[in-house]
Design a protein around this nucleic acid. Structure first.
Lengths: 127, 127, 127, 127
DNA sequence: GTGGTCTAGACCACA
DNA sequence: GTGGTCTAGACCACA
């Protein structure tokens, strides 16, 4: 990654653990199409050097991504991006779930359907 | 609270720390109008006994609520509910913020405005 | 565990990693009713000392058990046994799955239904 | 194997190492009668080219098959299928062993003989 | 070269 | 006291 912008960065002021930030960041890069399906991800060691992070921590992030079915690992070769299609579906289901939780909270807070929909319209346009 | 149903309960299978659950639970009770403005909250000791929890943990939850301006403490007397009006505004702002974050993520995931609004309508009706 | 027989033992000639052996062994002890629901498990540190194993390795086993929903952790307090009922159901489903895989392989190997059932009867009586 | 369907395939999303997949796959092909007794197996080199795999990995799989007595190697000539009869016996013994382990686990899990046999009948019919 | 496991030991949050 | 995270560094299996 010499001469380029770092794709993966760690926010040390973030209260979440490093491995969790890494997991989310890499997932987002895959969702964004930066790492297409079956592409090899940076090796544990190279990423560790690049980010000045202990290899164990990178390893943990990759293990978590594998457990989630987002990447797969070939022993002795490296880590590869799994099906981006199913990742996208998984992501949509997750967004839907979060929207539902939010709607529930808004209802409890006394919001009407009109307010909710107008809120939604506004949010969409503002971002 | 003897003889009634416990208003405040701890879910030990919840991954969040106990003081955080307490903070959220009390905030929600205030939002729901169970503890009106300027009402005195249960004392640290009584709550500690009732919930079989270390008093330090209760104290920490109250300190956090005070930091957020949701309650105020009168030395030697106890903890009291602060302005419920401003709490409600604060809560709405927080919901709005979360909606916006969600909208941003949905846009990135390739969702169209129509899909977004229909998703929102569905979520509202489902809860 | 002074004076008693060690409940948990590690087999260093086993090719599987220590954390995996631990995970399985503890799961079996819970299934056998040695650790009833909501019981506190030995602390990470105490188990590490008792088994002469690094605390990190114990931690990993406990994290895996938590991920599988077999135990739950209360921050600052310890690890506790989750619903044994659902663990038993999970275990039965797993056995059923393995039986099915075996039946498939036996069919491919040219076994008849009579042979299969007689095999099963023999296996049950022999153990 | 040009022009036909590949008999041996590697599943890179499989967690097992490549040499182990190869070993199992070739064993199954022999069991299925695709490679009859005393037939010559594809050479290490040709298989390495065909599967785009390191020759060392193929070599390792063949060595493992030889260790298990499933194939034999003639120096300077190649690898040949050993007695398919004894392989079949070996396979049956292995299945029997696994059935027995399963029966033991089912007994420990509190299953009755009736449940076990009905489970077995169901498994056979479902595959 | 690749990833996976483990030890030793530090430091933090929580109760 | 409890668990959770992280570093440093070793050693192994696999390709």
């Amino acid at each position: 990654m010499k001469g380029g912008i770092a794709l993966i960065t760690i926010d040390y002021s973030d209260r979440r653990p490093i491995y969790e930030q890494l997991t989310e960041r890499i997932r987002n890069l895959i969702l964004a199409g930066v790492f297409p399906q079956d592409t090899q991800l940076p090796s544990v060691r190279s990423l560790a050097v690049e980010l000045s992070i202990n290899p164990n921590t990178i390893q943990r992030a990759y293990a978590e991504l594998e457990r989630q079915g987002i990447i797969y690992c070939v022993k002795g070769k490296g880590n590869y991006v799994a099906s981006t299609e199913s990742l996208r579906e998984q992501h949509k289901a997750e967004l839907r779930q979060r929207v539902r939780a939010l709607a529930e909270e808004a209802k409890k807070a006394g919001m009407t359907e009109e307010e909710w929909l107008s809120e939604m319209k506004g949010a969409w346009e503002s971002v």
